[in-house]
Design a protein around this nucleic acid. Structure first.
Length: 111
DNA sequence: TTGCTGACCGACG
DNA sequence: CCGTCGGCCAGCA
């Protein structure tokens, strides 16, 4: 398995996101060490379907808490519905109390 | 091999 | 306040 790929690295972090919580691409990127390359995290999400594991990409949003990637969930409000299903309130694709439900891998997750 | 793209972030004017 | 630009790096044609 040598899935040491950058993607797999991201997946391992994303799958560890607790339900009802969300994180940002930058937070994951920084945790991985890529730092400023937050784009790579988003790119990894795009390829998440390529992974054998189920990636809750709906729990990953940009730093503003805006569902930027909802368009990739089928073009529907699926992403919004999934988050609401976990108790997260969303208004106009914007997560409510984003700071409170924000989950930082660099702080919460410790390896 | 080179070049373009991309679900971002932070700085600058 | 808001619009714009650069950076960063991995995958793909």
């Amino acid at each position: 398995m040598q899935d040491d790929s950058f993607f797999q690295r991201v997946y391992e972090v994303v799958v560890q996101i607790p339900p009802g919580r969300v994180t940002s691409y930058g937070a994951i990127a920084r945790y991985l060490g890529t730092g400023r390359s937050a784009r790579m995290v988003g790119w990894a999400m795009n390829a998440s379907h390529n992974s054998l594991m189920s990636i809750p990409a709906h729990r990953v949003v940009n730093r503003t808490g805006l569902l930027t990637g909802k368009h990739h969930f089928g073009g529907s409000d699926l992403m919004k519905q999934l988050l609401e299903n976990e108790g997260i309130k969303i208004i106009d694709d914007q997560i409510v109390d984003f700071d409170k439900i924000f989950w930082d891998p660099a702080k919460e997750l410790i390896l």
